[in-house]
């Protein structure tokens, strides 16, 4: 049984979430609903396997900080939103979220992302592929032509097998392209996170030393 907690600033969205996302036969159970990350970490939510985190909470918090706070407490994070905002999606991925899903009417995709996240695996969705394809920051990781093209085709709604056929490669190779994109963003994010952690520690202690918060997450990255 996979335990899930959800964070959304709109109580109306949280109201019927459990019934919609996790009916009895899905192997998923919603154990906590919170309107802010702070509230989540105070309650049962910190013991969940996966946290569904709204990307745009109306409380002035940054999605990157939210993702880091939740992953530091234990749960894996899948970010979610009604509106695909490229910058926020990329920020959440670089901060360590395992997937981003669009708040659609059909919960199938969200369930798939939750199952993957519970197993510590990343999950590519078309909305996420499009966000990575649209990333225009100067610091974005460099992508190969094949990687860009597979992102474009995947974002257009094709299944992985069709993407592979159109690229003239095996499905496993096509999936490899997308995995490599994710790995590049993980590296970029890890570099940023490491710098951030070091800076925070340095600010706290006045020295630059290896920090506690690097440990568990770095391990998880290696195995995932």
């Amino acid at each position: 049984m996979i335990t899930v907690a959800a964070v959304d600033d709109d109580p109306l969205v949280l109201q019927g979430l459990a019934a919609w996302l996790a009916p009895a036969d899905t192997g998923i159970v919603v154990i906590d609903l919170a309107q802010s990350v702070e509230e989540l970490l105070r309650g049962r939510g910190r013991e969940a396997d996966v946290v569904l985190l709204d990307i745009w909470l109306g409380d002035d918090t940054e999605v990157g900080d939210n993702v880091r706070a939740v992953t530091a407490a234990g749960p894996a994070v899948v970010t979610i939103s009604t509106q695909d905002v490229t910058d926020l999606i990329v920020e959440s991925i670089e901060a360590g979220a395992l997937s981003y899903v669009h708040k659609s009417l059909d919960p199938t995709e969200i369930r798939a992302a939750v199952r993957a996240a519970a197993a510590g695996q990343k999950f590519m969705t078309p909305a996420l592929a499009f966000a990575l394809r649209s990333d225009q920051r100067p610091a974005r990781p460099a992508l190969s032509l094949q990687e860009t093209e597979s992102l474009r085709l995947y974002a257009s709604g094709l299944r992985m097998t069709d993407v592979a056929r159109r690229l003239g490669v095996k499905p496993s190779t096509a999936k490899g392209y997308l995995d490599r994109v994710r790995a590049k963003y993980d590296d970029a994010g890890r570099a940023a996170r490491t710098k951030l952690d070091l800076r925070e520690r340095a600010l706290e202690d006045g020295i630059l030393r290896g920090s506690r918060s690097l440990g568990p997450r770095a391990l998880r990255r290696v195995s995932g």
Binding site: D9, D10, L12, V13, Q15, G16, L17, A19, W20, W56, G58, T82, Q83, K103, L105
Partner: peptide
């Protein structure tokens, strides 16, 4: 985004059929 869009999405999902008053 935080209000009308959110409301419409929830109504479309049909998760709040028991709480028409809230809607």
């Amino acid at each position: 985004h935080d209000t009308v869009l959110s409301t419409l999405t929830v109504v479309a999902r049909g998760t709040l059929s028991a709480r028409v008053d809230l809607i």
